[in-house]
Amino acid sequence: MSIDPLLVRARGLWEDLASVPVSFSLVGGVSVVVSPASGLCPPGWVGLVVLGGSAIVTAPSEDAAVTVRDALANLPVGAVAGADSVRGVLPVARVLGPAALAYVSEDGFRPVPTGVPTVEQLSGEHVDLRGLEQVSGDQDAGEAGLWEITSPAFVVREGGQVVAAAGYRVWPSRTAHVSVLTAPEWRGRGLARATGSAAVTHALAAGLLPQWRARVPESRRVALALGFRELGAQLSIELG
């Protein structure tokens, strides 16, 4: 049985982020391990990632792992990254996500033609990016995480102001975690797709695997328009 190369790379990333030996089962199922230093979730939380019909879960302690392992045994794999389904079997205090995990290969990428709109390249630390974050509000700016990018920023200006921007942060396993942000009054005009396309083009040219992690439907639609395929989801929970 052949395995999707994109899925193999995506799974390798999250296995690395788990910070302890763990693998997505080739026959499905859920693997729960103890990893206080897990990169799947904030410190002290439980991280859950489902990719291609298999899941890995990290817990901060052995006691938490036993609780989580017993509880998730009652769920189908597809429900492991669902906030409501997990709340139904575990005492959950706080939740981050779920977020869809999408990836694209060079042959599946559908770039936006260059030139319209004009996309400019800036330093990832350029002050104009901070202005975009300010007008976008803390919640949207926090979701995008533009301040974390290690790539150049790809931006669209209007009236001299940056109204949309995208870039990526290099993650382990040669992954490019894409960040995209558009000012509220400029949404729905294709600017996220244009700037995101420029960022993904840059990442693919560097031999990286672009990752698009999104919760809101609008962001997910942009990724799908660019050729990304949703392969799974991520959820982080703090046990009550």
Rank of each mutant, 00 (worst) to 15 (best):
E125N: 12
E125K: 09
E125R: 14
H126Y: 10
H126C: 08
H126S: 14
H126T: 15
D128E: 15
L129Y: 12
L129Q: 09
L129F: 13
R130G: 14
R130A: 15
R130D: 10
G131C: 08
G131L: 15
L132H: 01
L132I: 08
L132P: 02
L132V: 06
E133M: 12
Q134N: 07
V135Q: 13
V135N: 05
V135C: 07
V135K: 08
S136I: 08
S136Y: 06
G137V: 05
D138C: 00
D138H: 00
Q139V: 13
D140Y: 09
D140E: 10
D140C: 05
A141K: 02
A141W: 02
G142D: 10
G142A: 03
E143A: 13
E143Q: 06
A144G: 07
A144K: 01
A144L: 07
G145F: 04
L146C: 07
L146R: 01
W147V: 08
W147M: 03
E148S: 14
E148F: 07
E148V: 04
E148R: 10
T150I: 07
T150V: 11
T150N: 11
T150K: 04
S151L: 05
A153C: 08
A153N: 05
A153E: 10
F154A: 08
F154K: 00
F154Q: 04
F154M: 12
V156Q: 03
V156I: 14
R157S: 06
R157P: 05
R157Y: 08
E158M: 02
E158K: 10
E158D: 15
G159W: 15
G159V: 13
G159C: 11
G159S: 08
G159Y: 12
G160P: 00
Q161D: 13
Q161I: 06
Q161S: 15
V162K: 14
V162M: 09
V162Y: 04
V162A: 09
V163C: 09
V163A: 13
V163R: 01
A164Q: 01
A164L: 07
A165M: 09
A165F: 06
A165N: 02
A166Y: 01
A166P: 06
A166T: 05
Y168N: 08
R169L: 13
R169K: 12
V170C: 11
W171V: 07
P172M: 09
S173Q: 10
R174K: 03
R174H: 10
R174T: 03
T175C: 09
T175G: 01
A176S: 02
A176C: 03
A176K: 00
A176W: 00
A176E: 07
H177F: 08
V178R: 06
V178C: 07
V180I: 14
V180W: 01
V180K: 03
L181R: 00
L181F: 06
T182W: 01
A183R: 08
P184Y: 11
E185D: 15
W186C: 13
W186R: 15
R187S: 10
R187P: 01
G188I: 14
G188D: 12
R189G: 03
R189F: 10
